[in-house]
Amino acid sequence: MNATSSTVDGITVITAEGSIDSKTASAFESTAIGAVQGQSQVIIDLTKVDFLSSAGLRVLLVAYRQVKARNGKVVLVGTSEEIQDVMSDTGFLGYFVTVDTLAEGLATLKAA
């Protein structure tokens, strides 16, 4: 698992790669939580994430809460069908905007 953050057109983008399990979720969490500080528009790019356990869901939950506290929005990019199934099953899906590409994600937030 590898997680990085960047700013694209003024919007915070967190990009994760690989498998997010109880071992690797802490690295994802520190990147994500550091990046969302003070932000109300955040993109989390999961295109290259092939596995996300409940430990990863918890990171999404923590990031969501911080951004939501500023009435902001979290957009998930490239979430696999399997991960979307898990998010649906746990009632997470409706709280995030999900799009296929980073360009769509940026457009969604700019239009907001």
Binding site: S54, L61, V62, T90, G91
Partner: peptide, 13 residues
Amino acid sequence: LENRPIGGMGIHL
């Protein structure tokens, strides 16, 4: 999501 306790999802899944 803003109110729910963190955890308890693993066994459900």
